[in-house]
């Protein structure tokens, strides 16, 4: 819309030079109204779920200028705790350092891929973070933490295979009622923190088939690193 306005204005002013003498009445109309056009910067973030039987909660992508979504050895934020225990991303998107957010369409099943586009105006200096819960775990998640996008030119891609982290906010009991995914259909977020209260790499799930009789998980829910392939492509 803005583009076409400018084009019209430019065309009109060109014409006005050519026919200056005969068009004095048009002078008011052709005064160019050139608003600064915002630079739109867009990233396509494609995630492939590489697990056997761990659906991902809706992909949660944010751009931010500073900070980190998590730090190994430090307690998880409440926003990350909610995402890792239930997949809920409202708090994550509302974090004060987040400039733009974008969510996936729904659960991303094992073997499936989804692309989420995220756009921001007038900066190429953002950090990108992404989080998604492995829903058949107590509080396991994968994602990206503060990836600098400043070197990514239009058309460039960056790719990574990501591991699984444990938010450390909920004991990995694997017990009925504690896991929100289809393996259980249990509770998601609980405010009480009954685990180490530090973010770490995930040690994997045990499952009933591996001797944890109180687990609702089976051998199918086991996983190894990495669990996701993520590609960021700057498209504009």
């Amino acid at each position: 819309m803005i583009k076409s306005k400018i084009k019209l204005a430019l065309l009109a002013s060109t014409l006005s030079v050519a026919f200056l003498s005969g068009c004095s009445d048009d002078d008011d109309k052709i005064a160019p109204i050139i608003e600064p056009e915002p630079l739109v910067v867009t990233y396509d973030v494609t995630v492939t779920n590489l697990t056997y039987s761990q659906p991902f909660s809706p992909l949660s992508v944010v751009l931010h200028n500073d900070g980190a979504l998590w730090s190994i050895g430090e307690p998880a934020s409440v926003a990350l705790e909610k995402l890792a225990e239930s997949g809920a991303n409202a708090d994550l998107f509302a974090l004060s350092n987040v400039t733009v957010s974008a969510a996936g369409n729904g659960i991303l099943m094992p073997g499936a891929s989804e692309t989420v586009s995220i756009s921001i105006e007038d900066t190429t200096e953002s950090l990108l973070s992404l989080a998604t819960m492995l829903v058949n775990t107590n509080d396991g998640f994968t994602g990206l933490n503060s990836i600098s996008l400043s070197d990514l030119m239009v058309g460039d891609s960056w790719s990574a295979m990501t591991g699984v982290y444990d938010a450390g906010t909920e004991a990995n009991s694997e017990m009925a009622g504690t896991i929100p995914g289809p393996a259980d259909g249990g509770a998601g977020y609980e405010s009480a923190r009954d685990d180490s209260d530090i973010v770490s790499m995930h040690r994997g799930v045990v499952s009933m088939d591996d001797g944890l009789m109180s687990s609702v998980l089976t051998q199918a829910h086991k996983f190894d690193q990495p669990t996701a392939k993520i590609t960021i492509t700057r498209t504009e």
Binding site: N49, L50, T51, Y52, S53, P110, G111, A112, D209, D210, Q219, A220, K222, F223, D224, Q225, P226, T227
Partner: peptide, 17 residues
């Protein structure tokens, strides 16, 4: 262990049980 293959795409092996 199972007679199912739930994920028919190439994926990261979950390991032997």
């Amino acid at each position: 262990v199972t007679d199912m293959e739930e994920n028919s795409m190439v994926h990261v092996h979950r390991g032997n049980l």
